[in-house]
């Protein structure tokens, strides 16, 4: 069963306390964009994430998603920066009137690597954690339920949204809307598809909030939990460790820049 990006399983990664995975992803992203040694900071978290995903047996799905999502972006980045990068100096190749520059190519590569790493470390969390468990774990940390719901509901409603987009497209096609074809046609088709999505979501939100109210969502009583998602001291230590490492990296990089080492 897949719910959004979540892939069911029973690996050690699946069993980890969701917050541990969340902290991992957040620390990884902090290091990817703010760590010292741009290339190493960009590559290492990605490699570690993929190794972890591999040991949990869900690396293929993650890699496929990364390739699917990033290929078009990568192509655009390479073309834009490779041929038109403002820092281009060293010429690698000429293609008619266009010149491929080394600096632009390197810059595009860095961005792509960073994106791959970011996606890999986020997928580590998302593909191995049921949205419900993530939400429950967040509640266990003592965050207010309303805040947690606000953060979590987009994730939870994703599969429903996907289904609805499909229905809206069918309904409008049945009214003669051409959704295929050239770019202009597709752009014209966008509004009839998006507007009903927003409207029907608004109708739903009202009903949803009523349903939550009558189930005591804002009842003035202390909350309890049927089950606790198990956390361990080891994981707590691990989480603090990851936070400390990420902060150290960021501080070190900040200090290096301030003292003009770049």
């Amino acid at each position: 069963m897949t719910l959004g990006l979540y892939t069911a399983g029973d690996s050690w990664l699946h069993r980890l306390f969701p917050i541990t995975k969340l902290i991992f992803s957040l620390s990884a992203i902090a290091i990817i964009f703010g760590g010292p040694n741009k290339w190493l900071s960009a590559i290492l978290p990605g490699v570690i994430s993929i190794l972890i995903l591999w040991s949990a047996g869900i690396a293929w799905r993650a890699l496929k998603l990364i390739v699917q999502l990033l290929t078009p972006i990568a192509v655009i980045l390479f073309i834009v920066h490779g041929f038109f990068g403002p820092a281009n100096h060293q010429i690698l190749m000429r293609l008619g009137p266009f010149v491929l520059g080394q600096e632009g190519l390197m810059y595009a590569s860095l961005i792509v690597v960073r994106l791959v790493s970011t996606l890999a470390s986020s997928l580590l969390l998302v593909t191995s954690t049921h949205p419900g468990s993530l939400i429950q774990a967040l509640e266990q940390t003592g965050l207010s339920r309303k805040l947690v719901y606000l953060l979590g509901s987009p994730l939870l409603l994703l599969p429903q949204m996907a289904r609805r987009i499909q229905t809206i497209r069918s309904a409008q096609q049945s009214r003669g809307l051409e959704t295929q074809g050239n770019l202009l046609q597709r752009i014209k088709a966008l509004f009839p598809l998006v507007a009903p999505l927003v409207f029907s979501a608004l109708v739903d939100v009202e009903e949803r909030s009523l349903a939550l109210e009558v189930r005591g969502f804002s009842a003035p009583t202390p909350k309890t939990n049927l089950t606790e998602i198990p956390d361990t001291t080891k994981q707590q230590v691990l989480r603090w460790g990851m936070i400390v490492i990420a902060v150290c990296f960021l501080v070190f990089e900040f200090w290096r820049k301030r003292n003009g080492y770049d």
């Binding site: 309904a171 409008q172 409207f199 029907s200 109708v203």
Partner: peptide, 23 residues
């Protein structure tokens, strides 16, 4: 034929109006 072409011959009304009204 595409569904958009077939719409010249067959109209199909979906159950939930909120999943199509946009103007």
């Amino acid at each position: 034929h595409s569904p958009a072409q077939l719409a010249q011959r067959v109209a199909y009304v979906f159950q939930n109006p909120d999943e199509q009204l946009f103007r």
